[in-house]
Amino acid sequence: MATAAVTEVSAARGRSSTTLRVDRGGAFDAPTRERIVVQRLSAYFGTKCAVKDVSMHVLDNRVTAIIGPSGCGKSTFLRCLNRMHETVGGATATGSVLLDGHDIFGAKVNPAAIRKHVGMVFQKPTPFPTMSIRDNVAAGLAVMSPRPSRGDVDAIVERALRRAALWDEVKDRLHMPATGISGGQQQRLCIARALATDPEVLLLDEPTASLDPISTQAVEELVYELRREVAVVIVTHNMQQAARVSDSTAFFMLGEMVEFAATAQLFTAPADPRTEAYITGRFG
């Protein structure tokens, strides 16, 4: 499907293309299963309902995109999947989110533990300003149990940076402050940080919204590649981006999920007239 749209990032930057060559085969056909099952999820801010009665699922080794006009509840929905939603004062959620069959809203569940398995990257890059590039990537390792040894940490950091296609750009300045690199690099650094702890699911909340086109392309490349290893859920207001990187897409409007289908199908033959109106640009 999205093959044509994904081009070679390194070529775009005018560099050698060996490290970032994208291999289109494989991941798409890998066996999969339901990593996350969402059942009748509603989310509230105080009494205001932001997400209404949504049921869907997230497949392993696939990219699931969530699109919709601003304020449609897509980010709130995403934040329910790792219980980040509740970190806002007055925010609550009902229904259930099953992660490998375990309800993450369960009474004994520790939200911090959920987030170790379900990583997240935000709209704006959020490197920790007091830490070096290396320490940023290693930040999540500090809360892993067992905690990796010092030697392991360096290997993990390198692997995470390679997975995030950032290693070649920063390998000579790992001990420099993380705020000293470009916005696009910072965002990939945040992805590397999220990947370092080997999460099963990666949530991306409009990860390219604050990036320039070239950085956006780099991140999209990366998202497409990441499906080999994790389940990815990406919220975007950019339909083309959803079409390029995802395997299935959910369309949200006014807090409800209007349609959830294979990406190719949703964009070519939407079942709901509202979806059609949105993807043909009639509103939003």
Binding site: G119, F128, A194
Partner: peptide, 20 residues
């Protein structure tokens, strides 16, 4: 956003408050 980033890494609120 920094608080959120730390919490999203699985940091406890305590660790987020003190370390980040």
């Amino acid at each position: 956003a920094l608080r959120e980033a730390a919490l999203a890494l699985g940091y406890s609120r305590a660790r987020t408050g003190l370390v980040i």
